[in-house]
Simulated assay, not measured.
Amino acid sequence: MQDYKLFAALAAVVDTGSFERAAGKLFITPSAVSQRIRQLEERAGQTLIVRSTPAKATPTGARLLRHARQVALLEQELQDDLRGDDHERLVELPIAINNDSLNTWFIPAVKEVLITERLLLQLKVEDEAHTLGLLKNGDVLGCVTSVEQPAAGCTSTRLGEMRYRCIATPAFAARYFADGMSREAVLRAPAITFGKIDTLHSNFLASRFAVAAGEFPAMIVPSVQSLLHCIQAGLGYGICPELQWEEIQASGALADLMPADGPMVPLHWHAWELQSPRIGRFISHMVAQARARLPQ
């Protein structure tokens, strides 16, 4: 049981970013947190926490953190089973997910199982190409990612495809793309993009028109809904999830600039191989619902 306390201290420091806030979370003193981390580091024979602001786990610390989170979930479910508790305690569920999934299919897919399994989502939002790093670091127990190959000790399950449409208002399309999209047209038409870390738009232009990132004018709007609002306002053209497009296409307020050639991103679910029964039920439900909602 003592080891669990040491692992809990490691998780608290990484989650909160400091020894002081970790102490508040665990209801112990900062010196007690520091002592528990030192005990773990002595057993591991190496540093587990980078004493920076915020505090971060070293690669070895991240591996131990993954173990700590698994142990905590399994222990809690075991305690519930031993008590025969019909009203299981709420369990925190840290997940990394991309913005487009969060704003379209994810919440409708998991809302029922979150309620029935009494789970509290702790979401970390990142680009789909970068969410896997949060899983590897032990920050989350599962992630939605565009990467297929699983990390060591993890599984990978295909969810489906996230398909996109390149859209603009009819007036904007008439002004900049009267003769259709072309290299010359995209070099002068203002684009609405999510941000520099999100390469979906730039990769799309590079593959279709040999236009590199930085060669085309762009407005950065790091919000899925606000990006769509800017496109609807006629400020530029952009790429939105097909699931969003399906909700607005009937109005005629927006035009699909390349109906047969929108971008596509495969999505996969990655998680630790060892899961508690309750989290396992969540994963099974989420995967089934995702596959029902996303093109395969």
Rank of each mutant, 00 (worst) to 15 (best):
Phe204Arg: 10
Gln244Lys: 07
His201Pro: 13
Pro241Lys: 09
Thr199Arg: 12
Asp179Asn: 12
Ile167Met: 08
Glu242Phe: 00
Ser182Leu: 07
Gly195Val: 10
Ala185His: 03
Phe204Asp: 02
Ala213Arg: 14
Met264Thr: 15
Thr157Phe: 00
Val211Pro: 12
Gly180Arg: 10
Ala189Gly: 00
Ile197His: 14
Ser207Thr: 14
Arg163Ile: 03
Pro263Ile: 07
Ala206Trp: 07
Ala212Thr: 11
Ile248Trp: 02
His229Lys: 15
Ala191Phe: 04
Leu274Cys: 11
Lys196Met: 11
Gly214Ala: 09
Ala250Arg: 12
Tyr176Ala: 01
Ala191Asp: 03
Phe209Met: 08
Gln225Gly: 12
Asn203Ala: 10
Phe194Ser: 02
Glu273Leu: 13
Glu273Gln: 15
Gly262Tyr: 02
Ala191Ile: 09
Arg165Lys: 13
Glu242Ser: 11
Ile192Thr: 05
Leu274Thr: 13
Ala271Trp: 02
Trp245Pro: 09
Ile239Gln: 09
Pro170Ala: 02
Trp269Phe: 09
Arg175Gly: 03
Phe172Leu: 13
Ala191Arg: 04
Ala185Lys: 06
Ile220Phe: 12
Leu243Ile: 13
Leu200Trp: 00
Leu254Arg: 03
Thr169Met: 08
Ile197Asn: 14
Ile239Pro: 09
Ala255Ile: 11
Leu200Val: 09
Phe209Ser: 08
Tyr176Gln: 06
Leu243Val: 12
Leu267Val: 10
Asn203His: 13
Met162Arg: 14
Ala233Asn: 10
Asp198Glu: 12
Gly214Phe: 08
Ile192Ser: 02
Asn203Gln: 12
Gly195Thr: 02
Thr169Glu: 09
Gln249Lys: 15
Ile248Val: 15
Ile231Asp: 01
Ser226Trp: 00
Gly238Cys: 08
Trp272Asp: 15
